[in-house]
Design a binder for these strands. Structure first.
Lengths: 188, 188
DNA sequence: TCGGGCATGTAAGTCGTTACATGATTCG
DNA sequence: CGAATCATGTAACGACTTACATGCCCGA
């Protein structure tokens, strides 16, 4: 995965290993993190494979190794970006790809998000069934927290599904916020 | 982590490695998964440490290795369960502990969930700030999806915060569902 | 009778992280 | 002038997963 995250990060900019880390952190730090101990070796690997080139840039007596993506690197990245992202990997890790979706046609992106949404809905259904079975048991207060984790999953999926609905219609993202509590418009 | 998940799983029941896997899968499969390749070696380690004992049970000519937790194993598990869960680990992995919170006093559990909620709120605040900076830039449509992942994070955190609010008040969990769309009560 | 589930394990590989080692520059 | 940040890397370790190896039992 990191291999592709790096390629995506240097897709439009020539960066150093150090820069790459910062970009990953500030960009998708919420879904994915990387340490230097993994970035530098992978950069060497990408160099061997010819997916990147390295230019030594001398800045005030020091060498900065700036990495630029090659044509074959771009191809490799785009292949990864387009290929089936729904069936494999965790639900969160799918967001790593979405982060780079500005590089593919809108239409394709919406289709992929639609697939993702279906997967989420199926999963949510499963959890709801499990929850209902669970709730038929007696001694409810002996497993309140166990049950609460099921609700956690269902709710989280609900908010992810809403996100999909909004994004795939290209709606204003602000719609996702500001609709808490109130039934009718106040005077804010 | 798996070490403790196993101890928690056999806390009340004597189980085989195979059973343990099924229990983990059906119980917290949504936050945590384990393969046999990790369960069996860890079971041996727990045996060495004296946290579990193993009883060979012969069922129709076959040996089943049933593992029972010991006193020191229970102590070790409870220590892990109580110790600081907020500062380390991912947001999701905190749920693994919550799953076992029926084993600690309600009051303690609520306090821990309250801490967790604070962490979520701080994180959400960070993301909202980042989002607002982001939105001040021009060429909005060149990074719609990048921005959408930020919204994804904010929304997900919102639903997690709502979960915390509900659970720490010991509210009926159903409150978390059924409050979509409608502003006033219908006739359901 | 045969496929799927029960049941236990090992070996190799993956994909990282943590800690270490080094040193230069920049800003208050 | 010293702390933070820039910058590059390695070695050891960790926590798993995947694939393999084995074989029994049970129900259609």
């Amino acid at each position: 995965m990191l291999e592709f995250v790096i390629l995506g990060t240097i897709f439009d900019n020539t960066l150093t290993g150090y820069d790459i880390r910062k970009c990953i952190e500030s960009g998708i730090g919420m879904f994915y993190r990387a340490s230097y101990g993994s970035i530098y070796p992978i950069l060497s690997k990408l160099l061997d494979k010819g997916y990147v080139t390295c230019i030594d840039e001398v800045v005030s007596n020091r060498i900065k190794k700036k990495y630029r993506i090659t044509k074959s690197g771009k191809d490799e990245f785009m292949k990864w970006l387009i290929e089936d992202n729904v069936s494999n990997g965790s639900l969160e890790s799918a967001m790593v790809k979405v982060y780079f979706f500005d590089k593919i046609p809108r239409r394709t992106a919406y289709e992929k998000i639609n697939e993702y949404e279906e997967k989420l809905r199926n999963y949510q259904m499963e959890l709801i069934n499990k929850k209902e079975k669970f709730e038929k048991l007696k001694n409810r207060d002996t497993f309140y927290f166990k049950l609460s984790t099921l609700y956690f999953g269902i709710c989280k999926l609900q908010s992810m599904i809403r996100w999909c609905e909004t994004v795939k219609q290209g709606k204003n993202l602000d719609f996702l916020l500001h609709n808490e509590e109130e039934g009718y418009a106040g005077d804010n």
